[in-house]
Structures are given as C-alpha cells and as structure tokens.
Design a protein around this nucleic acid. Structure first.
Lengths: 343, 343
DNA sequence: CTGAAAGCGCTAACAG
DNA sequence: CTGTTAGCGCTTTCAG
C-alpha cells in the first residue's frame, strides 16, 4: 500500500481475507464473534486484522444489519440537566459495542435532528425535546426503537422515562407553604410547552402547582409567570416582576436554568435574601456555594441510563412499551427559607 | 404497504422510481439536484417522494460517497466552553446539507469516540480533546479531514483553530501585576496536559505564566498548583491551599471550571473577598452576578464556526493545512481587584 | 468448518 | 434527457 499523497483507500474486509488467506465470510464471522470458526482460522484472521489495522465500515454494516449506534436528540446543550442524562447514557453503554452520538437540534423543535439520526440508521433514538408532536413520534417509533425522556405521554410504540413531576412539585409546595410562604410565583416557559395535551414535564409541574395553590386557598396570592427557555429571558422577566410591589416571598422555577436567571435578577435587585428561590433538576451548579440553590433532584444520570437500557432491550426484541417513573427528591439549600428570615 | 406489527421496511429509491415510473438513476439525480433532469420528471419524482415520504439512506450513500455528517469529539460535556463551540458549529452548518453529531469520549482520552466517528464515515471530524497523540491524529487526518481545536501543534495534514493562549495569559498577568499582586497561584491540570510537547492550551498558558513571573522577578512568590480536571477536584485542591498561610492574593485558573471549584473553596473559607480569582474561557456562568468571575474570553462560538468552515473547505478540496488563531480578551468582573481592596 | 453468491440502498459511468 | 449497469463493504443463507 503506497503512501499516496491524497486520501488513502481504507482497508476492507476483502484485504483482510486476502492476507489471511481465507474468505470474506470467514472474516465476517470472526469480527462478529459468530459461531463456526476454528481457533486456527480465528487466529490467522485476527493477526491479519491487527497487521492491516482493519476497521469494519459501519455504513456497510448498517446496510445489512445494525449500526451499533444509539442517537440522542437534545434541544440545547446549554441545559445542564441534559449533560447529566448524557453522562448516565454514556456510562450505560460502556462495555457494550454501542456508541452514543448526540444530535443537537438546530431550532426550537427537534424534528431535523431526530430525522438526521433516523436517516443515519441508528439502532435506537432517545428523544428529549418536549416539543415534538406525539403522533409524529409514534410514526417514527414504528420504524426505529424510541425512548422519550421527560414527557408523560403513553405511547403504544415508544418507551418513556419520566420523573414524577407532580410529586416533585408537591414537595416544593409543601416545603414552601410549610415555611409560611403565600405570595408564591411559579416561573415557567410559554404555553406551547405547558399545554396539558403535551404531557411535558412543565405542563405537569404547572398543573400540580395550580392544584396545590387551589387546595391551599391561595388563588389570589400565588400566580404563574411566563418566560422564555433561557437564563437571560428568565432574568429579564423576574427583573420586571421585581419592579412591582409587593414582591413575592418565593419563586419556584420550572427548571434550574430559569432559576439561575431568576437568581441573577434577585441579585441585581439585592433581593436574594428577601425572596426564596427553588429550582428543578438539581444541576451541578445548584450545589455551588456561590449559588446554593434549593432544587428538586430527579437523578438525571439514572434517567439517561434507564433510557439507554430500554433502547437496548427493544433492540434485543422487546415489543411491549415500558414506562419508567423516577422519584424526585427536594434538596434544600441556602436560596430558600422562611419568609420572615428571608425578609 | 401493510401496517405490520413489527418494524416496517423503509421506502427505498426503487419504490420512488416505481411509483414515479422512472429509473432509480433519475430519482437519484433529482434528490441530489444533479443536472440532466427535465422539469416534468423532476415534478413527478418529487411528487412520489412526497407521497411515499421517502428519505435517502445515509448508510447507502456513505458507501458510495458522502455521509453529509460532521463529527465533533468532545472530552466531557460538563465543560461549558464546549457548548459554546457546539453552538457556533451548529450555526455554521445551518442551511447546509451537513448534520453535526457529537461523540462524547468515554474516558479521559478521546480515541474511542474519534474512531467511532471515523468508522461511521463522517465527512470530517473536529477534535477537541487535548490528550490525543499528535502522530496518531496525523495518521487519522490522512484518511479523513480533521480540525484540531485548541491545540497548537502544526500538522501537515490537519487544520487547527486555537486561541492565542500566550496573549491571553499575558493579559491576565499584566492585569494582576498591575493591581499589585505578587503572591499569585496558577491553578492548572496535571503534567500530562501541560507537557510542552503537547501544544495544549494549558501548556502554553503555564509557560506564559512562568515566563511572566520570571520576567517580573517573582519566582519566589508565584507558584503553580496542580489539580484534576473537574470542579470538585479544584475545590479540594484550593481548600488545601487555604489551609496554609499566608494565602495567595490571587489565583489564576487555567479554565473556568477550575475557577468555579476554586471559588467554591474560597467561599467555604470566607476568602472570596480576600483573594482575587481569574478564570479562562469566559463561560456563561462567569457573567452570572452570583459568580461574577473575571475571565479570558476566547470566542468559543467563533472557534466552533471556524472549525466547521475549515472542514467544509477541506471537503471541498483544499489540500494545504490552515491554522487560525483567535485573539482573546480579558473580561474583568467582581472576582478580582487590588490586593488591598480584596484583603 | 469453510467459501460462494446474492443483495442491502445508493451513486456514477456510460449507452441509448 | 433517460435508463442500464456495475459496484461501494458488509452480512447471510446455502452448498460443499
């Protein structure tokens, strides 16, 4: 093989077969650990593979069977909760022959990224975007194993891994109400994400918030505040909120990124010690002493691991859909306390 | 096509050709926007594609030519600087037919992830891990276009995008020295990453630090402190540092993640107002008012965009390697100030 | 236990 | 302008 100046042709299964003096089929069997190969042949083939530095082409393989690739579609890598999920997924794949690839969505919706993964013949897809249409996903799931992470829809074709968002929200509200908070603001994203039909985590958190508020007879004092999905947007929204009086005594953000934005606004107004703040996801930053954010932990790594395991089961042949629920727990930190102590 | 209970066979180019009443080659030309198709045929084919909801198989395509996929290997998604790079890369790809996929490295080194991308026939690879061997990368780059991001080696086969780490470090040091700091600690990772031969950004920052210190005649007072690559590790290391006396008046961390860990330790010891802190990368958190970290901005999104553009150029035929240098700039925030004011 | 042969879905010459 | 044909690298029956 000459060292041509341009791109080198990569070594194929045929090359290996030739140097080992066997057939392509034999080589294929060896690399797949398939039955029916004599130890001697296996040794010869492995030697040739080593010598030529052969690597099977995933593309060619995909055409026939599996690509040994699992795809994870994510809306936005700025979201720290996603990195928890990814690390769990990577862990779960360690030691298997599967590789994880992440496709970042380009816009708000993940259709492009999900289709890109499907086109690339991945053996399974984990979807995280809360904004993709359920029926669309259902259709996709008939062609390739899909796990939807976070959303509570019950599909006949895809699996789901979700946190118990109602329980998490109730924990937050019981905590806040127990401390004596009454003027509580729930900071969440726009209607598209909280519409009841979507089954999105934010929809459930919102509903649970409203139910708790109603049950406590606080409809007049507690309220819902809408914002975008970024920290900057939450910061601006809460800044406006703080221009009015009286201030709420507590803000419950639907996820930590919003909580961070809210915290920024509180710091700007020197209100961090006057207003309790609670987030959701317990991302790594929440634990930082300069942030110290009370937040709901929903075991992101476990969710990522579970999602991948379910995908592997599906690939292994399971037909019936499964739905896992992860139990969340409130982690109390310095950003929250009784209304008096905070005021 | 019956709605079989199992996996549905996906629609192929042949199906489209059949329903449109043309040859496969014709369909191929239409989907590739190739020349030599009559408008009438184009319309018929497009109608068939629409009707059948046809999507070309990337795997089959890769076997012949391009996969229209660019791969990005990243060491660890917990690193916020990487998300800046990713967002720039995604932006640059918007509107092209290329899709970005990210392969997270499983261990410290990125070999597995990089090979996985290469096996998957991506048309180009952006490598971010500072720990991969240059010769190994050189070999890889002969088979597939590669851009190395961050490291300063000058390869004949792959392109590089780097920040001017010496200039960035000098800005930091001039700033600190100008304020009157003398007992300055440089917090960086282990020797494997700062070995001069690697050309890693941390190696250059370390060298520039040492040169500035020597030039200022501070070899007795300034020192280098090693830690791991995580926030937790930096926190522990700085905690130990603060157990000794006298404290340094300033800590310069080799990247923001380490700076965050250092900040945590400073807060733990109530030393945040006594010790100036400077980071590198200017990740989003640095700007948060609860953190307010002085840091060196090196335009992560620009670097990501550049890397992708260079890859596209290589794919387009460029042979000669290119090396881009991005100029960094110091962003001063509340975490740093004169030694007296901080003490 | 081993190899020959067919074909996965697509593209690229080439012939008509 | 259109269709035929020969693979790309691999897996998978199916004979030997």
């Amino acid at each position: 093989m000459t060292e041509a100046s341009g791109r080198r042709r990569s070594v194929t299964i045929q090359d290996v077969a030739d140097t080992a003096g066997v057939s392509r089929a034999a080589v294929s069997k060896v690399i797949r650990d398939a039955a029916g190969v004599s130890p001697a042949m296996r040794a010869r083939v492995n030697a040739a593979i080593e010598e030529l530095n052969y690597r099977p082409s995933v593309a060619a393989r995909s055409l026939r069977g599996a690509s040994y690739t699992l795809g994870l579609e994510v809306p936005h890598l700025g979201n720290r909760f996603l990195t928890q999920i990814v690390s769990g997924a990577v862990q779960a794949l360690k030691g298997t022959r599967y590789q994880l690839v992440i496709a970042p969505a380009d816009g708000r919706e993940g259709y492009g990224a999900i289709e890109a993964l499907a086109d690339r013949q991945v053996d399974g897809i984990v979807v995280v975007s809360p904004r993709v249409d359920a029926a669309w996903l259902e259709r996709l799931a008939r062609n390739v194993p899909v796990v939807m992470l976070g959303r509570h829809d019950r599909s006949a074709h895809y699996d789901t891994v979700v946190g118990d968002d109602e329980a998490g929200t109730r924990q937050v509200m019981e905590y806040l109400l127990g401390l004596g908070h009454r003027r509580i603001v729930h900071l969440t994203e726009d209607e598209a994400v909280t519409a009841p039909g979507t089954g999105s985590p934010h929809a459930l958190r919102l509903r649970a918030f409203e139910e708790t508020v109603r049950a406590a007879g606080l409809s007049g004092q507690a309220r819902v505040l809408r914002t975008g999905q970024t920290e900057a947007s939450a910061r601006a929204t809460v800044r406006e909120l703080l221009a009015e009086h009286p201030w709420p005594t507590a803000v419950f953000a639907s996820h930590d990124q919003l909580a961070l934005g809210a915290l920024a606004a509180l710091v700007d107004h020197d209100a961090a010690s006057a207003v309790s703040l609670v987030g959701y996801d317990n991302t790594d930053l929440a634990a930082h002493p300069a942030i110290s954010l009370t937040s709901v932990d929903q075991s992101g790594p476990d969710m990522g691991r579970l999602a991948v395991e379910m995908l592997l089961e599906r690939i292994g042949g399971r037909g019936r859909p499964q739905h896992h629920i992860v139990t969340p727990s409130l982690v109390v930190r310095g950003s929250s306390g009784p209304p008096s102590a905070m005021g």
